[in-house]
Each structure stands twice: as C-alpha cells, then as structure tokens.
Design a binder for these strands. Structure first.
Lengths: 203, 203, 203, 203
DNA sequence: AATGAATGAGCTTTCATTCAT
DNA sequence: AATGAATGAAAGCTCATTCAT
C-alpha cells in the first residue's frame, strides 16, 4: 500500500509542514509560535515554508481548510445510513468528540487558535465550519418536517447552541489534558440534553 | 488641595484606563491593540498605565477579575427569590444574554480576546468564571435533590454544555453586529432546550 | 552665541540623526547602509530613528528636502547683486562647486545615492532640484531678452547640459577623493565653456 | 548531435540571459530585479544563470563590458573619415544620443542602474567608459594642436563636462519617457555649446 | 503622580546562491 | 548542461516597557 508511492517524500513537504504547524501552534499558540519553530519542527529551513505557504496566516488558514474537508467527509460518512434525525444528532455528537479525542492537537488549533484570530472571525468567513454545522441544522429541519422535533425552535439557534456546547466541552477536555474526562460520556450528555430538549414528546 | 480626596483620583484613573482598555481591546483585539492606543483612549500618557497595571496582560486580567465580580454580584441578585431550579436556569440564561447585550464591548473582550487566549486558559485559572458557572451546577444539583432534574446527568458536564451554548450564541451575536439577532429569543431557546433536556418529566 | 540655546540637545536629535545618515549613506550607500548603522553613528537606539522619521526612505528624502532648502537659499544669496546673466552663470558654477567641496559627503549622497533610487527618479518629483536649476534657466532667458545670449538655445536644454556638466565633474571630484582636483578650476572650465557657448558674440 | 555546433548553444544562452537582464534591470532596477525575474524573462532556470555568470553583479558588469565594446566600436566607425576636431565633437554627440534613442533600455541600465552604483563607481574601474570618453579628450588635444581649440582648457575637464551634459540630457530623455523630447535637438544643443565654448574663435 | 522620549529585543519575510538530480 | 527545490542569512520595523525629569 505504501510501497506504491515513489515520490511521497517530495509531495509530502506540504503535509510535513502542515502537521508540524499543527503541533507547534497547539503548543505555543499561533502568535506565540515563530515560523522558525515550525520550520524546525518540520525539519526544513525557514524559507522553505514560504515555498509552500504564502505566509504565517496562510499556514493557519490552510490547516483549517484542509482539515475541515476531512472532518466534513468523515461526518458525512458517519451519518450514512442513520436516518432518524434524533439518531443523527447523537451520531454527530459522538463523531465530533471522537475527532477531538483522536486529533487533540488539531482540535486545539481549530478551537483555540483559529477562533482567537480576529481576522479569522471578523474578516474570513469560515464557510467550511458553516457547512459542517449546517448538517446539524438540516437534521433539525428534517425532524421538524417529520414531526419528531419541536417546531418552535429555530434550527440556526439550535445549531449554535449545539456547537457551543460541544465546543466548550471539547475545550475543557483539552484543558483537562491528563485528567479524567470521558469524551464518550460528554457526547452522550450533550446528545441526551439536545435530543430531549428538541423532541416534540419525551418518551 | 489633594488632601480632601485621598484616593478618589487614583481610583478614577484606574477605572478610566480599564474602561479605555475594554473599548480598545474590543475594537482592535488584545494583540492588535497597542498600549499607546489605550493610553490615548484614556487620555493619559503611556507610562501612566504602568503606574496602575503591571503590564499589558495585567490589564486584560484585571478587566476579567473586576468585571466578573460585577457579573457575579448581578447574577446573584437576579436569582434572588427564584427558587425553582428550572426557573433559575431560565433566569440565568436571560441574565447572561442581557449582560452581553448591555455590555457588548466587554462581552467581546471577555469572550473573544480573553477566553480564547492560550495563556489565559492554560496558565491562568479563571476562578471567577468557575464561580459564575458553579452557580449553574448548583442549580442542577438542587434540582436533582428535589427530583425535578434527571440524576443521570453530571452537573459539571451540563454546566459546560450550558455555558458553551450561551457563549457560542453570544459570539454569533457579537459577530452578527448589525444584523437581526434577538438575544431574548436566544435566551429562551437555550433555556427551553436545557430545561426540557434536563427535566425528569416534560410537562 | 551658543549659550543662548538651552535645549539644543533635545531639538537636535532630528539633526543628529540626519547628519549621521549623511555620513553613513555617503560611505556605504543607501541600500548598503543599515538603520542600525545610522543609529550607531548618531548614538541613539534603532527605534529612536523611527520617532523622527517614517522609515529609511524618509530619511533619504528628508536629507534631500532640507539640504536643498539650504542650498537654494545659499544660491540666491550668492547671486544677489550679480546682475549680468553671464556673470550669474559663472557665480552659479562657483557656488555649486564650493558647496560640493565644503559638503562633500552631502554631495555624495545627493548625487550618487539619491539619484540612484528608482523611486526618487521615477515616482518622487524632485521639485527642489528643479527650482535650483530653474534659476539657471531664468538666467538664460534673461540673457536672451537682453540680447547677450543666443536665442536658438532652449533654456531647458541648456539647463540640463549645465547641470550635467557640473554634476559629472563633481562626481569625478568625489571619486578622485585624495587626488589633485581643483574645484575652482572646474568651475571656471564649466563657466567658460557655457558662457562662450551661449553668448551671442564672443569677445 | 551537439558536435557540429561547438559553442553556438552556449553563446546564445549567454546572450539570451544578458538581453533578458537588460530588459529586467531597466524595468525594475538592479536591486529591484530578482534573479528569478531574469531567469523567467530568459526562459531558463534560476540555476542556469550561475552557469554563465558568477553572480548578480557579474551580470550587470558583463552588460557594461560587452555593450561598451559595441558602443566603442560603433563610435570609432561613426568618427571614421571625420577629420576636423570640432566636426568630430558634433558627430560624437549625435552618435551618443542616437544610441540612447535606439537602445533605450540599455541606456537606462548603464546610466541609472550602473553608473550611479556606489560599488561600480568606487570599486570597479570603468575602463571602457574612460576609453569611450578618452576619444573626446583626444579630439580636444588634436584641436588644440591644430590651433582651433583654446589651449586654456584642460581636455579632461572638458571631457567630463561634455559627458556629463550628454548624460544628464539622456537621463531626462529616459525619465521623460513618452513626452516630447528630441534627442537630435539635444545633440545639436550640446554640440553647439561645446563647439562654441571650446573654439579659439567663433566663426 | 505623571510624563513621553528612548530603548532594543524580537520576528516575518525575501532572495541570491547552492547542489543533488 | 540544466534544473529548481531548498537554504538561511540578513534587516527593517514595531511596540511593550523603562526611567530621567
């Protein structure tokens, strides 16, 4: 499987730098990280980074863009075959927290650093994030049409509430670092609250 | 001349600088704001700021400390006389969103600039925020004891979920700036979801 | 005379830096000179330069602007009382070369470095230089009206030719550095050629 | 395959790069031009330039050396058959300005970028330029021996004055770019001034 | 207490040059 | 001979902080 790719070394320099950047940004923060830190972590010269990325900010934005694509694809796959809107909500929560657990440093960068950036939040429109969350809003709408979800809830409002709840718990997980914190329990907690909170009738 | 007002002058300047810092940080972001910007906004010399605050970061932390004290006091007052845990949840939500609306710049600083700061989250322990949110956890515990709230929910988990939901909606409100966004509707949405989501039996 | 100025030290920092810059630019060239070289030569910190000048280029342009003002004032004074256009030509030449001799480093900067700058020549309009040279063109016109100077010569063309001749000889003087090179002889040579070359009738 | 044309290929690429460099240097200036700009303009890789030239400066110096050879050869040819020293002066002026007009980009590089360079003037001895101008000094000497040119003029001084006058007018022509500026008129103006200015008796 | 001129460490980015292929 | 990816030194500029007045 891996023997087939002769020039992976070469192609991977983009990848190499990106992964190094995730590690460094997670550890030192975006503004606290120097380009030379990223270069060192990637094992390349400072200037090399500029052959692959326009500037420091482009590095951050590329992390967002590329990783969100993967996240999005993974989410869609995870939701495949799950029909019931409320089941989909639970699946979404579990998927999200599993990603946070499996890609802790990436999560840290996406959450803390990316959202910190004034530029990111105010000038750059994180379309990919909206697409990701939009899937949740769509679930709500579907449930409303099917009659299983209350219609007095604005899907957008619910979407932000859901995302915020997950995000904050992820943040606490990241900050807790080595302490007890079950992301599966977190997923269930969020899922249960929202499923009951949004359902037309609680069983 | 100055003997009559022993420390009014001092207190005023402390306050003056702090309020200026909130305005400037909200507008330019913490790292984007220069000390000289704050000084200018406060109508004092750059050096004067260092007579009242240790450094730039101290300014940010002091904003957090002092404003959280006020927020906390306000929250306790708002909850006074509200006995039922689930009613208290709704009151909390309304209080929180009202503060965001009435002190938008402060909210912007606390949320975007401060809470997302690497240093703040990782090194500094935001005790006051925990106290603020702890009040929510206490509500849950009270409800569980009274039998109105499900006991399979960890109060801490619920607390973070609740805070995250409110926080994210506040963030969207701040980012939306001049567009339609009713914070009262937001408060009700969050309150309804959590009240139903946490209740033992839905009415 | 000098005891009357109490805060010269303070006011002179602008001057101090400017003079240091002239020395450094003359020696290392504009692009070869580092800001830190100028700072060191002026005995101030790097950052101090930016309190008085916008950037490196501003330093160069300010040298030009301020020194041209002095040159211009001096030229006007030197020409005072000299009525005959052809006499004025000779006076101009002598004045110019005397300045080059007395302010060799400044001359070097103005000639070599300032004119080298693409920006200076193509974007910045050296109005002061034109004013300086315009005085020569005016002499020609006056002589043409009085009938002492040939009317088939375009004053502008003559002006550039005159300036070029002086400039090149100044350049050679600067480059010659420690060798024999009489600027007075140079002034007379140029003056003689142009006076004879421009006169209606040679005596 | 390559045995038939031993060094055509090589010469072509040398030439190719040199011509590209002239275009690029004229447009962006020497320091503003990147090696990669020259490489792109020449249609070769960056590294290839270093197979033909030692470094960036060598490129500039080679332009000077090779083009001055051509200029010199052309001047000698233009002067062939022109015997009278004063006629030769006029011929020189016309030849010079014609070259500026016909090789504007080269002129721009030689004058602005090269001649004004600190390094060029101070460290590198532009022998070829001296040879070119020496021809003018020789005219003066010849005229002085024949009795048609004043003997109180130092040929070297006159040479620099003449060159400076032509150079400055060329510079104005280059800077004027698209505006009216007759180089023939310029040539006549300079020639007339110097011929009259240097002649023993004006006709 | 207040000032604000002065400091100088710190960092992103550019680009001439090299060298493995 | 030719390539062009990689290098890494170099420097302009900013701004938090200090301190003499």
């Amino acid at each position: 499987m891996s023997t087939q790719e002769p020039n992976r070394e070469r192609t991977d320099k983009h990848e190499l730098i990106l992964e190094a950047a995730i590690r460094v940004f997670a550890q030192k923060g975006f503004s606290g990280a120097r380009i030379s830190d990223v270069a060192e972590a990637a094992g390349v010269a400072d200037g090399t980074i500029y052959l692959y990325f326009k500037n420091k900010e482009d590095l951050l934005l590329t992390i967002f863009e590329e990783k969100m694509d993967l996240l999005l694809a993974g989410l869609r796959q995870a939701l495949e075959g799950v029909e019931d809107p409320l089941d989909r909500v639970r699946t979404f929560a579990h998927y999200h927290f599993r990603q946070v657990r499996d890609h802790r440093e990436l999560a840290e960068v996406l959450q803390i650093e990316l959202r910190l950036s004034n530029k990111f939040l105010k000038e750059y429109r994180p379309e990919k994030l909206w697409t990701y969350l939009g899937i949740f809003a769509d679930m709500i709408r579907a449930g409303q049409e099917q009659g299983t979800i209350r219609t007095d809830v604005d899907p957008f409002m619910a979407m932000w509430a859901f995302f915020g709840a997950m995000d904050e718990m992820s943040m606490q997980f990241i900050l807790a670092r080595h302490r007890k914190f079950s992301l599966d329990a977190a997923a269930d907690t969020v899922a249960n609250i929202f499923i009951r909170g949004l359902s037309k009738e609680s069983a």
